[in-house]
Design a protein around this nucleic acid. Sequence first.
DNA 1: TCGACGATCATCT
DNA 2: GATGATCGTCGAG
Length: 210
Amino acid sequence: MPRVSGLRALPRSFYLRPADRVARDLVGRYLVREIGGERLVLRVVETEAYLGAKDRASHAWNGRRTARNEALYLGGGHAYVYFVYGMHWCLNAVTGPEDHAEAVLIRAGEPVAGEAEMRRRRGIRGPARPGEVAGGPARLCEALGVDRAANALPLWRGPLRLCAGEPAQRGEVVVTPRIGVDYAGEAAGWPLRYSLAGNPHVSRPRPAAR
DNA sequence: TCGACGATCATCT
DNA sequence: GATGATCGTCGAG
C-alpha cells in the first residue's frame, strides 16, 4: 500500500487546464473523502478525459446543457456526479474555464486509508481482491459514499477533495481509448484514458494489457 | 476464465 | 419509448 504523506488539496488552478492534461496529471494523486466521521483515501490509478461540446462521448456533446449536466458548466475544480444504468453513480472533476464543460472521469482507485469502511460500503465481507473495492467508476463512488449529494461540490476543499502526492512518472502511465463509449463514432477511438501501468486496481485491465 | 446478459431508472427523443 | 461514461451473475468451455 502506498505511503500517504501530507495530504494537501490541489489548488483550484490545477483544474484550469484542458481535461486531457488534468486527467494525465491526476494519475497517482489522492482522492480524500470525509464521511460519517471516517477519512477514506484512494490513490487515483485510472482516469478518462471528456472534452466537452466537441466530444461525442461527453454529456456536453454539441453544447448539450440540461438540469442533469449543469455542474459540468461550473468551471474547473467542481465535482460532476451523475447517475447511469439505473443504479450507478460516477464522479468527475470538471476542468477548464467556466462553461467549457470539460471533465475528468475518476475511474479507479487503490485503497490507501479506511479500506475496511470502503469494503463495508461496497458490501464486501472479508479481504477484497485487487480492484474489487474501487476498480471502476461506480465501485469507486459506492466505496466513498459519493452520490447526488456530492454533485457540484468544490474539490479543492471540503469533504471530497483531490490531494497532491507524487504524480505518476512519465513511463508509468498507459494511454488507451476510453471505456464504454463505442457509440461515440470517431471520438470512441481517441486516446483519452490514463492508467497506471500494471496496477491491479485498474478497471478492465485486459484490453489494455500492454 | 470468459463472454453474454439482466437489473433498473433518470433523462432525453 | 429508447438508451446508457456499469457491474454482478450465470452458464459454457
